[in-house]
Design a protein around this nucleic acid. Structure first.
Lengths: 104, 104
DNA sequence: TTGACAAATAGACGTTTATCTATATAATAA
DNA sequence: TTATTATATAGATAAACGTCTATTTGTCAA
């Protein structure tokens, strides 16, 4: 069971270039905050801030280990949100019908 | 042939509540600006402003007819953008593989 | 040609957002 | 305990954004 889909919350969460870069960083692997900071050109507090926004939108998985916190992109939720966007804003597209079957 | 996909441009375009309401208005039918304004609770210039943002993101089709301008949501492009988002941020999801086949 | 209507543009204003530095919190090591 | 490292939080600041009113542009009818 998914939490209720909020299309504006999702869109806002991914609507920033820095956040999309963070999402790319931890798309296919767990990354600590420090590792993410090293790949970005913004400060550590800025990265933490963006991670909080992604977390609030349910877009990242979190694993705490000692003093480190690891993040990974929640691909499942990304796919779900994109599918819901398609249902809402592309209901007559063939691709939407197909996604709908796959996601439900 | 599609114009190059810009995931931040797309996300920004749909990241506002008013714009999403406009998108709903003209999702499945052509609407004049006046018709859209009537269904919304913002001024006509505000609607025009948001329509311009949606237009710049390629998200609406436009048809001019006399003194009226009709807009309709470009569902095809919405589906394309959502699919590209899935490819970028949910590459390992089954749904993404399936969408990819349908969109290409 | 004048008036009315539809839509876009200009400019002002307040809010939100992205960033930074400084600091706090928490965990580990010496 | 104290120092160090990792992350989060607080507060300040500047830029971006959404909205409004006023005006302009363009089309049509009288």
């Amino acid at each position: 069971m998914k939490t209720k889909f909020d299309p504006v919350l999702f869109a806002k969460a991914i609507s920033d270039d820095t956040r999309q870069k963070i999402m790319e960083c931890c798309c296919c692997e767990w990354c600590s905050v420090t590792e993410i900071v090293e790949k970005m050109d913004v400060s550590q507090p800025t990265v933490s801030h963006h991670l909080a926004i992604l977390r609030d939108a349910g877009l990242v998985n979190i694993r705490e280990e000692g003093k480190q916190t690891f993040y990974s992109l929640n691909q499942d939720h990304v796919a779900y949100c994109c599918g819901q966007l398609m249902v809402k804003f592309a209901p007559e597209e063939k691709a939407t019908q197909i996604v709908l079957k796959t996601l439900s």
